[in-house]
Design a protein around this nucleic acid. Structure first.
Length: 465
RNA sequence: GUCCCUAUCGUCUAGAGGCCUAGGACAAUACCCUUUCACGGUAUGAACCGGGGUUCGAAUCCCCGUGGGGACGCCA
C-alpha cells in the first residue's frame, strides 16, 4: 500500500506555526514511506475563504520547502462530486432531509442546555420504520443529515494517542448539506479523503471529535477507513493557547524576523516529536527518522529561545553568499547598498557566528557599507585625547602596512605598545571610528575586510573632527 | 453541563516494569578562552501532579481525584 497523506488547510488566514507543523509531519510521513503528499484547500466556507489566504498558505509552504506531490485541489471545484454522493446517500437511506428550522434548532439547544445536556439534534426527521412524519413544511428548504448509527461504539487506534472510543449515542445526525445544497466540512473531508485515497490522516488535535463522525460516514459509503494521527496543539511562549488575537503568527513572519527556514523546520520537527537525544538534524535525517510512534500526545509550549539557538546554529554554517544576499535584501530596505563596499560575503562570514538572526546580521553589516554613526556618548567616552593620538600613530603605520590580518594585528599591537596603551585602549576607539560601535569581531579581521582605503579615510575623518 | 484527550527539570523532551543515584537540549548560574562583544569549552543547580491499587519491584500498568486542553455550528 502506498502511503498518501494530505495537508488540508482552510484559506481563512495565513499559515501559522501549528499548521506548518501539521504540514511538516504529513509531508515527512509521506516522504519517509516513499508516498505522496497532497495539498487540498478546504474553501467551502465561501464567506471566510479568500484568494489572499490561499496565496499566503502557498507562500508559507514554499518558504518552508514543503513541496506537495499532488494538488492543490480546491473543494469548491468538486461540488458536483459532493452532490453526486449526497444523492447516492439519500437514495440509499444513509442520509435524509430535515426540515427543522434554525429557530427550532435554537430552541432545542436552549432547552438542552437548560437541562445541562449536550446540545444535539434530536432526530425528529430521522426516518425510522413505522415512524409517521407531518407533511414537509412549505417554504423551508431542507438540509441533508447523515443517519448516524445510534448503537455501539466507534473506535480507532490513533497513531499518536492510542485507542480512542466514542459511543455512537454521543453523536447526532449532523448536517452534510446546507439548505442551499452546499456540502459541509465533515462530509467533504470524507469524500475527498476517500477519492484521493488518503491512507494516513495526520491533523490537529481539534479534529479528534470529528473523527468518529467521519469514520461512520466512511462506513456508510462502504469506503475503507484510513489511519488517523492527531497532533496536540502548540501553545504560545507564555503557555497560553495560540489564537488570532494572541500570538498566532504567520510562518512568513519568521522570515521577516530573520529566521532561516531550516531552523524553523528543525525546531518544529523537534516540538512534539523526538529521536532519542537528537536536537540538530537536516530534513534528510528527519525524513529518515520520522515516525508516528515518537510523537508526544500532550500539548507543547513554543520556546522562542530554543528557536533562536537553532537559528544561530544554522547561521554559523550557512553559505556566506546566501547570508550576504539575505542581509542585502534587508539593507536595501534601509537604503543601504553593497555597491561601493567591501566583499559582502566576507563581512557576513565575519559576523555570522555572532548574531541570532538575519536582521541582526544586516545591522552588523550596515556600517561596512555606510558611514559609521557612533553616538555622541561613544565619541565622548572613547575618542579621548590619548586615544586620538594613538589612532593618529596607527594611521601612519597602517598607510604602508601589508593588508593582511596578521600584519594588521601586529600593527595595532605595536602602536598600542609604543603609545603605552593596553590593546583595548586603542582597539575600542578604533572600532568606534571604523564601525561606530565599541564591539566588533577581531579588530585585525575587521581591518582586513574593510580594506585600506576605507580604513584610512574613516580614520582621517575622525582625526579631523 | 456532556463527551474526548492529556500530565517527567522554567521550556522541549528521553524513558515500552528492574539498565533511573531519572538522561539530553534550550534557558539560568559559575569558571575557562579572549584585544572588545560574541562564539566556543567545562562545570553546577533544576523534574516523574496527588491518592489508591497490581507486582518481589512502578516515572512506566489500572482506578479515582486534580490541573491543562479540545469538541459540542446550515465554521473548517
Amino acid at each position: 500500500m502506498t502511503v498518501r497523506t494530505r495537508f488540508a488547510p482552510s484559506p481563512t488566514g495565513f499559515l501559522h506555526i501549528g499548521g506548518a507543523r501539521t504540514a511538516l509531519f504529513s509531508w515527512a510521513y509521506a516522504r519517509r514511506h516513499g508516498g505522496s503528499f497532497i495539498l487540498r484547500i478546504e474553501d467551502t466556507d465561501v464567506a471566510r475563504s479568500t484568494p489572499e489566504a490561499v496565496q499566503a498558505i502557498l507562500d508559507g509552504m514554499q518558504w518552508l520547502g514543503l513541496a506537495h506531490d499532488e494538488g492543490p485541489f480546491y473543494q469548491m471545484q468538486r461540488m458536483n462530486r459532493y452532490k453526486e454522493v449526497i444523492g447516492e446517500m439519500l437514495a440509499a437511506g444513509t442520509a435524509y432531509h430535515c426540515y427543522t428550522s434554525r429557530e427550532e434548532l435554537d430552541a432545542l439547544r436552549a432547552e438542552q442546555e437548560a437541562r445541562k445536556e449536550k446540545p444535539r439534534y434530536d432526530g425528529r426527521w430521522r426516518p425510522e420504520t413505522g415512524k409517521e412524519f407531518p407533511a414537509p413544511p412549505s417554504g423551508i428548504a431542507p438540509v441533508v443529515r447523515f443517519r448516524n448509527p445510534q448503537d455501539g461504539i466507534v473506535a480507532w487506534d490513533d497513531q499518536v494517542k492510542g485507542r480512542i472510543e466514542f459511543a455512537n449515542c454521543e453523536l447526532d445526525d449532523f448536517i452534510i448539506a446546507r439548505a442551499d445544497g452546499t456540502p459541509t466540512y465533515n462530509f467533504c473531508v470524507v469524500v475527498d479523503d476517500h477519492d484521493m485515497k488518503i491512507t494516513h490522516v495526520i491533523r490537529g488535535d481539534d479534529h479528534v471529535n470529528n473523527t468518529p463522525r467521519q469514520i461512520n460516514l466512511l462506513r456508510a459509503l462502504g469506503a475503507p477507513v484510513p489511519e488517523y494521527g492527531h497532533l496536540s496543539m502548540i501553545l504560545g511562549d507564555d503557555g497560553q493557547k495560540l489564537s488570532k488575537r494572541h500570538g498566532a503568527v504567520s510562518v512568513m513572519q519568521y522570515d521577516d524576523q530573520g529566521y532561516l527556514p531550516e531552523a524553523v523546520l528543525n525546531y518544529l520537527a523537534r516540538l512534539g516529536w523526538s529521536h532519542g537525544d537528537e536536537e540538530i538534524f537536516s530534513m534528510e535525517q528527519f525524513v529518515r527518522w520520522f515516525d508516528l510512534d515518537h510523537i508526544t500526545a500532550s500539548a507543547a509550549q513554543f520556546n522562542t529561545e530554543k528557536l533562536n539557538w537553532l537559528n544561530a546554529h544554522y547561521l554559523k554554517q550557512a553559505d556566506p553568499q546566501r547570508l550576504a544576499a539575505e542581509a542585502g535584501k534587508r539593507l536595501v530596505r534601509q537604503g543601504v547598498s553593497f555597491e561601493a563596499g567591501p566583499d559582502a560575503s566576507r563581512v557576513a562570514t565575519l559576523h555570522r557566528d555572532r548574531v541570532a538572526n538575519l536582521n541582526e546580521l544586516a545591522d552588523a553589516m550596515h556600517p561596512y557599507f555606510a558611514p559609521p554613526t557612533p553616538t555622541p556618548e561613544l565619541v565622548a567616552q572613547h575618542l579621548t585625547e590619548p586615544a586620538l593620538k594613538g589612532l593618529a600613530a596607527l594611521r601612519t603605520r597602517l598607510a604602508d602596512c601589508a593588508w593582511q590580518a596578521a600584519e594588521l594585528g601586529q600593527a595595532v599591537k605595536q602602536t598600542a605598545t609604543e603609545a603605552g596603551m593596553k590593546m583595548p585602549q586603542l582597539a575600542i576607539p578604533l572600532r568606534v571610528v571604523l564601525l561606530g560601535l565599541p564591539q566588533s569581531p577581531s579588530i585585525d579581521a575587521v581591518l582586513e575586510v574593510l580594506g585600506r582605503e576605507r580604513v584610512l579615510s574613516r580614520l582621517e575623518q575622525a582625526l579631523q573632527s
